Amino acid sequence: MPAEETETPVTAFLLVKTTPEWLGLTPRERADAFATQVVPAIEAKTTGVRSRFYDTEFYTARVTDVWVWEADDHRAYQLLIDALRETPFWDRYFEVVDLLVGVENGYARTYGLDPLATIAT
């Protein structure tokens, strides 16, 4: 009997562009907005999600930031997006330019292969 597979973690890359409203806030107001408007909304809707944020405005005018969200499974990811859409961060403070969702090493899981990766020495 094959081993029971666990749900595959999901990684989402949200490519966003700041709005004038967001840029009109001070850096402290921006941090406070995230802590008081985004974090509580996410915590109320889902568990098993983590985030990282990357500034890209130095290299492109189309996208100012990339938000990387990792979710334990597809349900947690869906709940995360629902929560984000109910905050001013979705299309008020940031325009969502694109949303790229993937499963790390999905091909390896499909074909029963070891994942390919590079290691710098």
Rank of each mutant, 00 (worst) to 15 (best):
E4M: 15
E4C: 02
E5M: 15
E5L: 15
T8N: 05
P9M: 03
V10A: 02
A12N: 03
T18I: 09
T19G: 04
P20E: 12
W22G: 02
W22L: 12
W22C: 05
L23K: 15
L25H: 14
R28A: 08
E29G: 11
E29H: 14
A31H: 15
D32G: 06
D32F: 07
A33K: 10
A33R: 13
A33F: 02
F34W: 14
F34V: 03
A35F: 07
T36C: 03
Q37H: 11
V38D: 00
V39Q: 13
A41M: 13
A41I: 13
A44Y: 01
K45Y: 04
T47R: 13
G48I: 11
G48W: 12
G48T: 11
V49W: 09
V49M: 09
V49I: 14
V49E: 06
R50T: 09
S51K: 12
R52T: 03
R52A: 10
Y54R: 12
Y54S: 04
Y54H: 13
T56G: 02
E57V: 08
F58Y: 10
F58D: 12
Y59M: 12
Y59A: 09
T60I: 03
T60Y: 05
A61N: 10
A61M: 13
R62P: 03
R62S: 10
T64K: 01
T64L: 02
V66D: 01
V66Q: 06
W67L: 13
W67P: 02
V68E: 10
V68Y: 01
D72P: 01
D72I: 15
D72W: 12
D73S: 06
D73C: 00
H74K: 08
R75Y: 07
Y77N: 07
D82F: 01
L84P: 10
R85Q: 14
T87D: 00
T87W: 01
T87K: 03
F89V: 02
R92M: 00
Y93H: 10
Y93M: 05
E95W: 02
E95S: 09
V97L: 02
D98K: 11
L100D: 05
V101L: 05
V101S: 06
G102P: 01
V103F: 07
V103E: 11
V103S: 04
E104I: 13
E104A: 11
N105M: 11
N105E: 06
G106H: 09
Y107A: 07
Y107C: 07
T110M: 06
T110Y: 10
T110H: 08
Y111G: 03
G112W: 14
L113Q: 11
L113V: 14
L113I: 15
